[in-house]
Design a binder for these strands. Sequence first.
DNA 1: CGAGTTTGACCAGCGC
DNA 2: GCGCTGGTCAAACTCG
Length: 317
Amino acid sequence: MDYSSSWVDTSLDLNLNPKRIKNEVSIQENDFMELGIRNISAKEESGALMEELNRVSAENKKLTEMLTVMCENYNALRSQLMGYMNKNSEKELSPSRKRKSETSNNVINNLNNNTIGNSESSSTDEESCKKQREEVIKAKISRIYSKTDASDHTTLVVKDGYQWRKYGQKVTRDNPSPRAYFKCSFAPTCPVKKKVQRSIEDQSVLVATYEGEHNHPHPSQMEATSGASRSLNLGSVPCSASHGSSGPTITLDLTKSKTTTNNDARSSKPRMDNSPEVKQFLVEQMASSLTKDPNFTAALAAAISGKMLQQNHKEKW
DNA sequence: CGAGTTTGACCAGCGC
DNA sequence: GCGCTGGTCAAACTCG
């Protein structure tokens, strides 16, 4: 999740354009001049309005800055939490098979050294943890269908913007075409895995199955925030999001997008992140994740109450 | 030379 | 216990 300053700017832009209003005021002022009615009072009024405008725009600027700082703090906290969670998961999970065998050896050692009761309790804990982990993974599985060049039956690459490292390939029983296994290599701690296999029905369709959630922003988003104002790769991908009983599910149907090069897609197709649906979706996503965060809501409440108190103080004086 | 890919071997889970 | 299958590892290889 990333909150760029541009988003903050646009969302908080209250269309208070002092220049424009200034012109309108000056037109009004000219009309009054022509009519020759209450020149001095009109000037006073416009001056007061300008003052008010300046005050409001300054306040707007302050609020924008506050929200930007808040978003930065939120991101920092979030990344800290992610790091902490990764550390914990590294401790709890057995990432490699070797470690698994080590843990099984430990169980055997426990059996040899300790009483049966102790070993049993440890094994039941392991089982419950494992079940929980499986449930979490199941809830974060998504499937993507990607249309590829019909003549090209060799590549198993689904271009989703992320950086993947292939670690295996297998021919499965139910499908003659091989299944490729990928791990997200963009972030070393990212747990996301991807399986890519051609569809049995249509060999030109790649079926990518994603497991887990990325603990880092989308690479294109990272680029966008680091200076280059490029839009999301997702931009040209038709997507739908649902929140079923099994958890959040994202389905991307890449078969609906033409197999054009990135440049072609960029030049000919209207970018999807410009469409109101995607904007609304992104805003809803941001809003939901922000409202779910107690740190953010607390900080926001504190900021608003502080601002209100400040306002009351001003009005009194 | 480092990063990514390939591929045979190994392991765990499951059904019989 | 055995065989089958899916998933993962890691050494060898390739490529820029």
